[in-house]
Nucleic acid binder design. Structure first.
Ligand SMILES: NC(=O)c1ccc[n+]([C@@H]2O[C@H](COP(=O)([O-])OP(=O)(O)OC[C@H]3O[C@@H](n4cnc5c(N)ncnc54)[C@H](O)[C@@H]3O)[C@@H](O)[C@H]2O)c1
Ligand SMILES: NC(=O)c1ccc[n+]([C@@H]2O[C@H](COP(=O)([O-])OP(=O)(O)OC[C@H]3O[C@@H](n4cnc5c(N)ncnc54)[C@H](O)[C@@H]3O)[C@@H](O)[C@H]2O)c1
Lengths: 235, 235
DNA sequence: CGGACTTTGTGAACGCAGGCACGAGCGGGG
DNA sequence: CCCCGCTCGTGCCTGCGTTCACAAAGTCCG
């Protein structure tokens, strides 16, 4: 119970925030931005839960990791909560990102304005194909992947996106790390490893589709060739 | 990979497979495909774990949900395991997918050959913009979103991909469900809900970047305004 | 000014997932 | 033919995440 001198702006002793909570914070932020737009000043955990698609107790617990920012009997102040969450997520300043691999996907990402708006401007594009180097996408010149060290230093970029073929992914990741990037988002369908202390997240569309396929099949072909069709307790 | 008279081809009473395991199966499949290509006939859980980036006990437990397909002292037969996993995931036949929203992202997805190769051919593209309807991307004509019921029936498509702006996502999802789609992959940054019994997965790039931003900030700004800098036990 | 009502913050219970460790089973070598 | 070494399959334990339920704490209204 330190800080909080009539709503201090200091962080309350930064406790450990569970990974699952961290993953939901951006969803809350987005929801709150929508609410702020429509001039809603206060929100209850129940309503926020509904909008964010989670359980109300979950919302309260998640928010409680950030501090006691709610008012009992009233709810949470939208603007204030937004401020606290943005700060916690590090959204108070821009994070320039570097995209490696300017093919189908890299081009779509580079052209997409949504990242810049949300504080993740595309700072640079790199590719290994000499024919692509020198061209520009969305106003950004494509540079050679060998220049990564310079580019990273130049833009103080800490976040890299890998949109190269799978075979090149680990090499590109290594180069990024060597150049000073310490957070990587990998789109290539390959297992990439980075040194301890770095962050790596992956988005694998083929995996997503295959997961859908699994459940889809279970529905359409309930127990096609199962020997015994006992009423297995399926939640 | 068919026959295999000595070993029954029947599914062993299809037990319940944990969601976390289902999410890893596609990774194993991809790894095994690579091994099959290089003529590796047998693989141990330890090596597979290494290639898939997980723990060896995890691999064994995951595979044990499918049945006892390993041979003690030897390992798993690559081809056979691949066959069993493919069947479990429903990859023995193609799953045509429908992409809604042919903008930056939709176009990249439509042009990407990887899905078709992996059994998820793009069966149709739909958009609400009359200027886009009639044009073709990657050899596939763009049709109007109003035609969804016909399109779904025509292609027996059960999987839909939403690549529209967030504001349209729920509406498109509803239309897809009404048309007979029961598995949806949503790329729009919006909370979409579907009726019970349908599958919905989301890929939200902005959320991914914000998660990276969170950990990145914690690294670069270790305890900027924390009151006490105790040696917090960070795993 | 007091009481009823609302909503937060959190303790406790529960279920899922991950990892260790070890017995069981198989192949290979002597 | 037997024994040894290897690897699977799984029971058990631990930790994380989710949900329930309720006391605490504030607001609002009469
Ligand atoms: N396009 C999609 O919709 C889509 C969907 C799912 C997954 N993916 C994955 O995303 C990745 C990119 O897909 P894509 O369709 O854009 O592929 P692409 O072949 O169109 O583009 C790949 C780009 O990476 C460049 N590249 C190759 N090696 C490189 C290296 N070492 N360093 C830097 N750049 C290098 C190539 O020159 C090319 O420009 C692939 O791994 C793919 O599997 C793409
Ligand atoms: N492009 C990217 O790299 C990227 C990255 C992350 C997230 N996203 C998300 O993916 C979605 C699509 O992004 P984009 O860049 O392709 O957007 P875009 O604006 O380029 O394309 C959207 C398309 O959807 C169509 N559309 C609009 N309403 C529709 C409706 N009701 N039914 C069918 N089609 C409709 C539009 O006509 C347009 O062709 C957005 O939600 C975006 O936030 C895109």
């Amino acid at each position: 119970m330190e800080g909080r001198a009539a709503r201090s702006v200091k962080k309350p002793a930064a406790r450990h925030i569970p990974e699952a909570t961290v993953a939901r914070l951006p969803v809350y932020v987005r929801t709150l931005l929508g609410l702020a737009d429509e001039k809603t000043s206060t929100i209850s955990s129940e309503r926020l839960a509904e909008l964010a698609g989670v359980n109300a107790a979950q919302v309260r617990k998640d928010l409680s990791y950030l501090g006691s920012y709610g008012t009992r009997g009233v709810g949470y102040d939208v603007e204030y909560l937004l401020f606290q969450m943005s700060r916690e997520l590090g959204l108070t300043h821009d994070w320039p990102v570097i995209i490696a691999g300017v093919g189908n996907l890299g081009r779509a990402l580079a052209n997409y304005g949504g990242f810049g708006e949300r504080g993740f401007p595309v700072a640079a594009l790199v590719d290994a194909d000499p024919k692509k180097v020198g061209k520009a996408i969305g106003g950004i010149e494509i540079r050679h992947v060998d220049d990564l060290p310079d580019i990273v230093a130049e833009h103080h970029a800490a976040i890299g996106i890998i949109a190269t073929p799978a075979a090149a992914a680990q090499d590109v990741a290594d180069r990024m790390v060597a150049a000073g990037v310490s957070s990587i988002l990998n789109f290539a369908p390959a297992i990439v490893t980075v040194p301890d202390g770095m962050s790596l997240r992956k988005v694998d569309l083929a995996v997503e589709l295959q997961i859908l396929s699994f459940y889809q099949q279970r529905r359409t072909e309930p127990d096609a060739d199962r020997t015994v069709a006992s009423a297995g307790g399926e939640g």
